Structures are given as C-alpha cells and as structure tokens.
Amino acid sequence: MLGFFVFMYYLYIIYSETFDRFYVGSSQAPWKRLQSHNTSKFNTYTSKYRPWVLKAVFEAGITRGDAEKIERFVKKQKSRALLLKLIDEKFVPNGKLAQLVRVPQVRH
C-alpha cells in the first residue's frame, strides 16, 4: 500500500505579554516559528517584542497560498477584537475564516 503525506500550512497567533502585542503568521511548523521569533539574531518586528507565547494555531490549508490568503485577511482587519475571538477556544471561525480548523494541543 502506497501512502503519502499531506503537509498542512497553519495560521498562528503569538502574543507578547510584556508589550501587550499580537502577531499573526503562517507556517508549516508554527512551533518552530515560535522558537525562531524568540531567538532569531536578526532585527525583525517580532524581535523587538520578545518573549512571545503561542496563543492559537489553526490548520489553514494544504498550500502556502491558502495560509497566506487567510493571514493577509486577518492582518487587514487590524482588529484586536478579532484576534481575541480567534484565541478563544470556544470561538468557531465563520465567514471568510470558516476553513480554519483549530489545533487543540495549544495551551495558554
């Protein structure tokens, strides 16, 4: 029997408690990206607001384009209220976010 792997792309939301800021990104490995946001030697947006904690992870699609489309949509909203809804485990994404599937292993 031949098997194949489908690599999922994820939308993730990280939070800096020190600076009370959220960041939204997409990646095939959001847990690895969190580590990178917290340790990268490069001067980036996220390097200024360390440390970051992972608040939510969602399956966003099987292509990078799928995940980036959702990421752009969320960022364009410029809505803290939306981010607070997304990190609420009881919130069920709908509308343009209906394709998101929460990854339950993330603990706050």
Rank of each mutant, 00 (worst) to 15 (best):
L54A: 03
G25T: 03
T18K: 15
N94T: 15
L54T: 02
P30V: 06
N94S: 15
K75R: 10
T46F: 12
P104M: 13
K75S: 04
K32V: 12
F58C: 02
V53Y: 08
Q99E: 06
R64N: 07
A67Y: 11
E59R: 14
L11Q: 02
Y9N: 15
T18H: 15
L83M: 14
P93E: 00
W31E: 06
N38Y: 14
I14C: 13
E68F: 13
V6I: 09
D88F: 12
S40I: 03
V74H: 04
R102L: 00
K76F: 11
H37P: 01
F7M: 12
F73C: 03
Y12K: 05
F58W: 04
V106W: 09
S27K: 09
L82H: 10
G3F: 13
W52A: 05
Y12P: 01
L11V: 11
Q77M: 15
A81S: 11
K69C: 07
G95H: 05
S16W: 13
E59V: 15
V103S: 04
V92A: 12
R21T: 01
Q99W: 00
R33L: 02
L34R: 09
M1A: 01
G25P: 12
V6Q: 08
E59G: 03
G65E: 06
V24C: 10
I62N: 08
N94H: 12
F42T: 00
K55D: 10
Y45G: 03
L100Q: 05
L86Y: 01
L2R: 12
M8P: 00
K69V: 06
E68G: 03
F91G: 00
A81Q: 10
S27I: 04
R72V: 09
K69S: 12
G3K: 15
T39M: 06
K90V: 10
A67P: 11
K78N: 15
Y45S: 08
L54K: 07
E17S: 03
L2T: 06
T18V: 11
S36V: 02
W52Q: 03
L97R: 08
Q77W: 10
G65Y: 13
Q35A: 09
R33W: 01
I87L: 14
Q35R: 07
Y9D: 05
P51H: 09
Q77Y: 07
R80I: 14
I70M: 10
T46A: 07
K96Y: 03
F73P: 00
W52G: 07
G3D: 00
T39S: 07
A29Q: 11
K85Y: 00
Q77I: 06
Q35L: 08
G25D: 02
A98K: 14
Y23T: 01
V74L: 08
W31I: 07
F4M: 14
L84K: 11
M8R: 09
N38M: 10
Q28T: 13
L82Y: 06
F4W: 13
N38G: 08
I87M: 13
V74K: 03
R80Y: 12
H37D: 02
Y23R: 13
D88T: 04
R80Q: 12
V74D: 05
L2N: 03
E89Y: 10
V53K: 14
R33Q: 08
V103W: 14
K85M: 06
F73W: 15
R21L: 13
V106F: 11
V106D: 06
I14N: 08
T46W: 14
F7D: 02
R64P: 00
G25V: 03
M1I: 08
A60F: 01
W31F: 13
S27G: 06
